[in-house]
Amino acid sequence: MSMSEQSVQWYELGPVSSIPLRGSRRVVINDQTIGLFRTATDKVFAIDDQCPHKKGPLSEGIVHDNCVTCPLHNWVISLEDGKAQGADEGCVNTYPVKIEGEQLRIGVALCNKQELATVGD
């Protein structure tokens, strides 16, 4: 993620264990639905919950290695960089995540000044 630390708002998402291994959950931030994925090797990723193909909800897909397979038409999306795998072309946004203790946090870019003001209050 090329976004600089300054323009990111972090959110607390509760314990990592609330996401099943090889599974996913969803979170809605600023009207954007984001899929949270936890792989077999206990890595956590966050990407937009919308397949670049037909907007399928990626968080409903099967998680394998560091990828998820879209439930609608089986596109395979990398959780690391959001890119479609194989011959398919397309990409979804990724978000930075941090794990502090057991707690999961996600960083979401701030879109405008007003939001900064509310958050900074």
Partner: peptide, 18 residues
């Protein structure tokens, strides 16, 4: 159920409040 996000105040990045 979705996860509920809670903004982390301590890390609020910029102080642009007038």
């Amino acid at each position: 159920n979705n996860i509920t996000p809670l903004p982390v105040k301590s890390e609020a990045p910029l102080r642009l409040v007038q």
